[in-house]
Design a protein around this nucleic acid. Structure first.
Lengths: 139, 139
DNA sequence: CTCCGTGCAAATAGTTTGCAACCAA
DNA sequence: TTGGTTGCAAACTATTTGCACGGAG
């Protein structure tokens, strides 16, 4: 983890008034250290942290990801009933989900054009519009 | 449960060469008995069966719903990380998900018009296109 | 009669929580 | 100091599975 990544992580946490603890910095550096958006599962992020040599408990990874969501630094994306994905990108945008590997990546938002949306039931408004394009290897 | 509902359930099972056991008939009648599409959770369907007086174990409800999906009678819809929904409608179509109640309903498919979809990565094809419109009560 | 289907209870996977030790401010 | 954080292990929820019994063909 480069000092630049750490610095980015620190700024990211500061933006949300979260105390820069050792664990949060380690996770933040992995999440936004290179300036790219990331899609992680708790398990996957935990593995990534351990790989850097830092030690953060899995429970803390879960709690921290949830904390990041609570303060608006990340959002949870539901694509697979069995695990939760967390996304550092905060706007509504489509995702590609690879069925074989379970990986999740952004789909270019600009290329999705919706001409008409079903009429919203009376008294409700759209909280979020999720578009997941599930992909399988071509035969 | 009307005799008509039972009859419909029986035909539905026959379509997939599934043995019409007492439990499957009870579930099928609830799922397709009135000719309308339905969105259920295992828990919810189990409650519904018990309410009719029939007795089916929760494990069997889970196994049976999965069996229905395996033979192409239903599909699983992922909208909420914590529970699975099962849909008797088999084509790709958008859903409304009510955040407060957790209910899931079809959105009129005809009213969703997608003009352009992001380019699919090389070597992959679309397995399924999920569109979930999450709704919250208007302020 | 034979084997698929079912129920139960125990196992599992992912995630959350209670509580004592810890550390940033 | 002091309240926010963390780690561990135990708790939880949704779902699956092993195995013995039971019913459909």
């Amino acid at each position: 983890m480069t000092p630049e990544a750490l610095e980015r992580g620190k700024g990211w946490l500061a933006k949300a008034d979260l105390r820069p603890t050792r664990q949060r910095l380690a996770l933040a550096a992995l999440l936004v250290g290179d300036g790219h958006d990331r899609h992680v599962t708790a398990e996957g992020l935990h593995d990534a942290v351990l790989a850097t040599g830092d030690r953060v408990s899995l429970a803390t990874v879960y709690n921290t990801l949830k904390a990041f969501c609570d303060v608006g630094l990340m959002q949870e994306v539901t694509v697979d009933g069995s695990r939760s994905y967390f996304d550092t990108r905060m706007d509504d945008h489509p995702h590609f989900h690879f069925e074989e590997s379970g990986h999740l990546i952004d789909a270019p938002a600009a290329e999705l054009q919706i001409r008409a949306l079903p009429a919203i039931p009376e008294g409700y408004e759209i909280a979020k519009l999720d578009v997941v394009i599930r992909l399988r290897k071509k035969a």
